[in-house]
Design a binder for these strands. Structure first.
Length: 882
RNA sequence: GCGGCGAUGGUGGAAUUGGUAGACACAACAGGUUUAGGUCCUGUCGGGGGCAACUCUGUGGAGGUUCGAGUCCUCUUCGCCGCACCA
């Protein structure tokens, strides 16, 4: 055995061994339980970052742990390979996106392999390969047949930087999720997937996911946004300039508070509403206001702080139940994209309407009697809008009804007049998947002048994307590619044109997990193996995908299920959202007023007397820099750490250990160079221990008479087993930082040198050798999921076996855990006062007696009487006095 | 505004779920090994008081339940994340 811990050599040899043995090929033998462990696949951006290392280390620890627990494990890896960065790189470097992507994949694959992940590489896939995206196209056509996919022209979110349409989910605060550019509204035809048809299921089935974090489920539920209410119409006789009745003389609105319908004093419509457009035609002031609203609505970020503003259109509509005339206002707080783009306004029972009415001096009519709030003051009181504590008043025949009864009665009356009905309104809208981009999956449609939009026949799939295009930044290069565009109509055979839009890349990632399982199926999207492996037992990835990717994947699964392609309802049984990797941010204001960032290695920290960080200075000029605390690793802040240099300097095992040790998986992880060194120090100590003490497997065959072994050795053994017990408990909680701690505790216990008589054949010497060999073999196995290379090597060198992968998972022995004597704490009135050692089988009365007579306790008993004594077996005694 | 999560030493974080708070590390300090630096080893390390045995205090804050609370309940402050005029 080498005296030094030569990690580079150790890791390369271990990786070579696994590759030669094909050690991680996933196979189901039907006898063992299956465990499908999936980490979100990376976008091949160029090289791995620390977030990847963390993500995949968590997955690998779980995979290796379950494998040793006796599961058949599938841990695949692939590439989310379509997408815009490839096009942007192509524009810059004049290289086809395909080449850029494949080069990146090759490099990043090497990086992943150098980290020693137990991945079944035979199942590797890239979404930009025709063999994969063929099935995107195939399923899209099936969805088209079922009416789940359809084409429509709609106002869409247009990202002016990426020159493409964005789904609503991809617009964040009015800006493109990737570019941050202010999104414009455009009228563009495109294909949509009817995710709203599944809204109810997507919401309800969240309850089938106990293994998901609460906040992710909440975010999805909010996103789906179900509200139950009544859709009804005000009646009018408003005609456009041609004399045509607008919307058949009905102003439709949606409300969740139909019980307040008799309190309506006006209606408010969105700026884009037809009635607003009409009214603006001869009212320049109104037209100007509407224009202002429309511009404002693009900047959704400002909406939150925006003052409620509005303007009277002069138009009047009739209340469907009271027949009263109601004025129609344009309100900047009414959204065209939600509900009907118009609302009934009840200032007495809606906070927004209240503010609006106050501002414009519109009538406020109370229609609900609120418990404990008889009088309506000038200021809004929260209970005015509380549907749970009121009955209808001033509402004619509905007076005295509570919320539910009132809604039922009102909905029934509206229905009788065919002017309304109960309705469930969703915030979720259909998923627009057309993208005016090149580097994506072609939408399999052919446009024929005679036949219209014709689906590409199955036998012509895949519609292959040419891989040699170099985009120049001016839109989609497919539009200029005659060889791609020109084709024959599958229906009539006449010359026709191919659709050049490609699919949103979220389509690619919506089902890749199912394809890993059926990776070798050539003539079907998925085969029987998918049903055997699915659902994913553990999915691991960033919280940033809490809505988009996870919602789309759930939707896609349900579509595939309804087409009888798969049998599961939900694709991911358990979800772990790993925390981000942070590092210090150092910056300085430049003379020009900008901010200059410093990389951590360019900085020296200044400590105060207590060792607290006081400040920092730049190594280059010795001048102070601002220490901004921790932030996500990013290029712009210059606080990223390159995994590659970490692996080269310390090895993959150190990188993996640090990642697991520094924080629990769900929490943010703060980078620390000294923490990395500490992790490396630990692994070196493990190696040194093995080299110095030779805890060889042969020692496990020594015959030990445990009854006569010294207490010191027994305690040492107990500590090791105790740490293992804790670690196994923590593994169940997926709390890996304390598993790493337990490894350190075990080594600490092993290193407690035991002074035993150095006589050959002495029982204590044997016991000590046994304890060390036993403990070290347990340490190696416990550590192996986190640090597979060093443990693989030592397992073999110390003769424990050929391959630690096939070793059984260590469990603590009861015999090693029991103590002859137990230390018990003694409390008086809940305060810790003394401790004592009692025999393990001492009974309660005995313990009570010992505690009360304890010298450290006696002084607290003077002048008071003992009221009660509580004995917690094995732990403590509490003497209650008074 | 709504929803979710969190607050424990100088720092990252433990506390087997109501039973010895601060495990395991990092940093710092002191000492040893070393020609020196690094490595490595030993010790100290929440705060106050005491020469000491010890003692008081302590998990953002205020109450409460309990023999006993970091953990449960109520209120409150601050921080992070998500959604946000959703009718």
């Amino acid at each position: 055995m080498q005296p030094q811990y030569l990690f580079t050599e150790i890791e390369q040899r271990a990786q070579q061994y696994w590759a030669e043995k094909n050690a991680f090929a996933a196979k189901l033998d039907g006898k063992k339980p299956k465990y499908y462990c999936l980490s979100m696949f990376p976008y091949p951006s160029g090289k791995l970052h620390m977030g990847h290392v963390r993500n995949y280390t968590i997955g690998d620890v779980l995979s290796r742990y379950h494998r040793m627990q006796g599961y058949d494990v599938l841990q695949p890896m692939g590439w989310d390979a379509f997408g815009l960065p490839a096009e942007n790189a192509a524009i810059q470097n004049k290289v086809p996106p395909a080449k850029w992507t494949y080069d990146n994949i090759a490099y990043m694959k090497k990086q992943l392999q150098s980290l020693g992940f137990a991945i079944d590489w035979s199942r590797e896939l890239a979404t930009c390969k025709p063999e994969y995206y063929k099935w995107n196209q195939w399923l899209f056509l099936r969805m088209l047949e079922k009416g789940i996919a359809y084409k429509k022209t709609q106002t869409v979110n247009w990202d002016p930087v990426d020159q493409t349409v964005l789904a609503n989910e991809q617009v964040i605060d009015g800006r493109g999720w990737r570019t941050g550019a202010v999104v414009e509204k455009r009228e563009i035809p495109g294909y949509y997937l009817g995710i709203t048809q599944y809204a109810e299921q997507l919401l309800a089935d969240l309850d089938k996911l106990p293994g998901w974090p609460e906040r992710v489920k909440t975010m999805q539920a909010n996103w789906i946004g179900k509200s139950i209410g009544v859709r009804f119409a005000f009646i009018h006789d408003i005609r456009d300039t041609m004399g045509n009745l607008i919307d058949d003389g009905k102003l439709w609105v949606f409300t969740t508070r139909a019980d307040t319908i008799m309190g309506v004093t006006f209606c408010a419509v969105a700026a884009e509403h037809p009635l607003a457009t009409l009214a603006a035609q001869n009212q320049p002031e109104l037209a100007a206001f509407i224009e202002k609203c429309k511009q404002g609505s693009v900047m959704e970020a400002d909406m939150a702080t925006m003052e409620k503003e509005g303007m009277d259109t002069g138009l009047k509509v009739l209340h469907p139940l009271s027949g009263e005339q109601v004025p129609v206002w344009v309100g900047n707080y009414v959204l065209m994209s939600y509900g009907e783009g118009a609302v009934m306004a009840v200032p007495a029972h809606d906070e927004r309407d209240f503010g609006f009415a106050k501002k414009y001096d519109l009538p406020i009519r109370q229609s609900i009697a609120i418990e404990g709030a008889a009088f309506f003051s000038d200021a809004w009181v929260e209970s005015y809008g509380d549907k749970s504590k009121g009955v209808c008043i001033n509402s004619g025949k509905y007076d005295g009804l509570r919320y539910e009864a009132a809604v039922d009665a009102i909905a029934a009356d509206l229905a009788a007049k065919t002017l309304g009905e109960k309705k469930t309104q969703w915030r979720l809208r259909d998923w627009g998947v057309s993208r005016q981009r090149y580097w994506g999956c072609p939408i399999p449609i052919i446009h024929c002048d005679a036949c219209g939009d014709v689906p590409v026949p199955d036998e012509q799939l895949p519609v292959k994307l040419p891989e040699d295009c170099v985009p120049d930044g001016s839109g989609n290069p497919l539009n200029k590619l005659a060889a791609f565009i020109n084709c024959d109509c599958p229906k009539c055979g006449k010359p026709a044109k191919r659709e050049t839009d490609t699919m949103d890349t979220f389509v690619d990632s919506s089902w890749y997990y199912a394809r890993y399982a059926s990776r070798f199926s050539a003539d079907a999207m998925v085969d029987a193996e998918t049903s055997q492996w699915m659902p994913v037992d553990q999915y691991i990835g960033g919280i940033e995908h809490a809505i988009l990717h996870l919602l789309y994947s759930r939707f896609w699964s349900k579509v595939m299920r309804d087409m009888a392609l798969v049998s599961y309802d939900e694709p991911f049984a358990n979800l772990l959202t790993q925390g981000m990797v942070l590092n210090h941010i150092f910056s300085r204001r430049t003379d020009k007023g900008g901010i200059e960032y410093f990389a951590p290695e360019e900085i020296g920290l200044i400590y105060d007397a207590n060792g607290k960080i006081e400040g920092a200075k730049a190594l280059a000029d010795g001048q102070p820099v601002d220490f901004q605390g921790m932030g996500t690793m990013s290029k712009s802040k210059r606080n990223g750490v390159d995994p590659q240099s970490l692996i080269e300097q310390y090895g993959a095992d150190t990188a993996r250990f640090f990642m697991m040790f520094a924080a629990p998986p769900e929490q943010t992880l703060e980078w620390s160079d000294s923490g990395v060194e500490g992790s490396h120090r630990f692994l070196r100590r493990v190696w040194n221990f093995a080299h110095t003490h030779k805890p060889h497997s042969a020692s496990l065959h020594l015959a030990v008479d445990w009854a006569s072994v010294t207490r010191v050795i027994k305690t040492q053994r107990r500590e090791i087993h105790l740490a293992l017990k804790q670690a196994n408990y923590d593994l169940g909680k997926q709390q890996f930082n304390t598993v790493a701690s337990a490894c350190m505790k075990m080594l600490n216990a092993l290193e407690t040198s035991i002074d035993v008589a150095d006589t050959a054949g002495d029982n204590n010497t044997f016991a000590s050798m046994f304890v060390i060999a036993e403990g070290f073999s347990m340490l190696l196995r416990l550590l192996s999921p986190i640090c597979p290379h060093i443990t693989h090597t030592m397992w073999r060198e110390l003769g424990y076996g050929d391959d630690i992968l096939t070793a059984f998972w260590p469990v603590p022995l009861e015999a090693a855990l029991v103590q002859d004597e137990i230390e018990m704490m003694i409390q008086v009135n809940g305060k810790l006062r003394a401790s004592m050692t009692v025999a393990k089988d001492a009974d309660k009365a005995n313990i009570e007696q010992l505690a009360l007579s304890h010298a450290g306790v006696q002084k607290y008993l003077e002048g008071v009487s003992v009221k009660k004594v509580i004995v917690v077996p094995g732990k403590l005694v509490n003497v209650v006095v008074g």
